[in-house]
Design a protein around this nucleic acid. Structure first.
Lengths: 131, 131
DNA sequence: CGGTATCCGTTGCGATACTG
DNA sequence: CAGTATCGCAACGGATACCG
């Protein structure tokens, strides 16, 4: 007898196979696009920047620093530059004195934060280890 | 006029707000469940282990080492231990001579690999920066 | 076969001081 | 305000040698 679970497993397996085979050419060149993407958002501070910008929409450098507990100016700069380079965060400079710089998510970054929330929520709910 | 896109944006924003508020208590204690989960699978070698085990289903230590280009025995050990501690990978020891150890994904790990593939595929298709 | 132990270079990152 | 520059420690991770 084939249960519903079996069918899901089969479909899942097919998806994994397809993905595996499609990424092999990249991997053989020592380049993993998945890692590249994820390394931008999943390093020590990336997630905090994304989630805070997703919630507050627009934040200045100092506001962002205040909202992320423990981050240094150096790491905030480095993290934001990486996120900007990956088209996740948008940086808007206003030529004023004192200077004013605003950060917000790009359209892509906004969609990404949505995906990250999905997987995060699923993880928190389904992981036995976290509890 | 309210477009379909506007409605999507609003829904997304609500989701982000809800998630942000629900994780604040954790974050105030300096503990981020999302990071905890992701740090297990998104470090230097975790993804490769998960994807290879997802595809091959069962692999021995040496087979896994061969299938992941460039990984050292040390890092494979460390990575597998972490994945096992997070209930992502299952380790089966056979008391034989020579010793035989098989690795496979747990049910949770299998589901996780599915989520990771979803977000990976989406990323590769939608990121302008990768191309 | 399936690891562990040790060594050691590289990288990450926080603290501090300074700047347009 | 919004950073940059420099320093220095600590963690990461590769190479090698060894073991049950």
């Amino acid at each position: 007898m084939v249960t519903k679970t079996d069918l899901q497993q089969v479909r899942l397996k097919k998806k994994i196979e397809k993905f595996y085979i499609s990424t092999q050419p990249y991997l053989k060149q020592g380049f993993c696009p998945t890692k590249k993407l994820l390394s931008a958002s999943f390093d020590k501070w990336g997630l905090f920047c994304i989630f805070n910008l997703g919630y507050h929409e627009v934040l200045r450098f100092s506001e962002l620093k205040k909202s992320i507990d423990g981050i240094s100016a150096r790491m905030l700069t480095v993290t934001l530059k990486k996120l900007e380079a990956h088209d996740i965060v948008k940086r808007s400079v206003f030529s004023e004195v004192p200077p004013k710089v605003e950060y917000s998510l790009t359209e892509f970054g906004f969609a990404l934060s949505n995906k990250l929330i999905d997987i995060s929520s699923w993880f928190v709910e389904n992981s036995k280890v976290l509890k």
